[in-house]
Design a binder for these strands. Sequence first.
DNA 1: GTCCCTATACTCGGATAGCAAGTGTCCGAGTATAGGCGG
DNA 2: CCGCCTATACTCGGACACTTGCTATCCGAGTATAGGGAC
Lengths: 162, 162
Amino acid sequence: MKMSEGVEWAVHCCTVLAHLPAGLGLPAARLAEFHGVPPTYLAKQLQQLSAAGIVTSSRGRRGGYRLARSPADVSLLDIVLAVDGAEPAFRCSEIRRRGPSQVEDRLYSPVCGIAAAMWRAESAWRKELSAVTVASLIGGMAADVPIDAVRKGAAWLQEVLR
Amino acid sequence: MKMSEGVEWAVHCCTVLAHLPAGLGLPAARLAEFHGVPPTYLAKQLQQLSAAGIVTSSRGRRGGYRLARSPADVSLLDIVLAVDGAEPAFRCSEIRRRGPSQVEDRLYSPVCGIAAAMWRAESAWRKELSAVTVASLIGGMAADVPIDAVRKGAAWLQEVLR
DNA sequence: GTCCCTATACTCGGATAGCAAGTGTCCGAGTATAGGCGG
DNA sequence: CCGCCTATACTCGGACACTTGCTATCCGAGTATAGGGAC
């Protein structure tokens, strides 16, 4: 089981977008440049974030992406579901109803015990992810990202937005 | 993000194997028949369970698979890791160290805050899975599986083991 | 000097190839059994 | 009648195609801006 590579990019992009001055947007090409990833592919993830209502886009000159909501209102779970898909990782194909031991459909319990256990675990996973927001990530970065990197990033942003 | 289809099969197989009389094995073909899945592909999952030390196999006539440990000592997590791979779903590619804001490697904290949050969530997921064992699954089934299905399954097992 | 218009350059969005991993299958290596043969 | 030996049938294990979905890319649709011209 592996998560799409684009999730990592999308989360990083959101933390960058959270630092934009209100009303301004940052083009996908700039975000790709900042993170050193293929611009054309990153565009795809940003489109999915846009479709999910996490970011808004504006076209044309001086256009780009910006957060659609407050950083505190965007959870890690929101981003993961937007980019990686919302359907659960475990899919029950109801094989318990096949083979020589099968009986009438109406006799089975609504959910298989194995699927229930799997979904309980996924629920715990989602709960942890929903407890983390872009705002809290940025808060953690303050004590985590090298001060020089912060400075260089801010300078770059200044340059690009001009 | 999706889990391998084989995980579901493997878990079901383990619950069946737990019902075998001590010392006897059940061939992959019989397990496939019981669950109504492709025999040749199920064999692959069983090989992985065998490699992980969850089941043991014996070749030749009257051979087959049986649980290597007590059902209470086989967790759902064991099976998932064996079949679906043990590496974490989220892989951090350290993109924070790329682009215009990069600084010397030694200045960065050992783990990226985003990766830490992701792995915390995965840890919660694994914790839930490790709390469920084949034994507890079987216990739950007692109240969950139609009595007629249990009876037919037991009869089929009797027939096959003869 | 001010307003308007047009051309331009820049942006996103969806449609389009390439590739890796999961899915599905097959045949060869190995072993316990069953039957036959000799004692 | 008993024990041994061989041939057999059945099992797992790894090597081999195929398909799906992720990865990566490109070109067309749309828009704000900048510059020039008219008033």
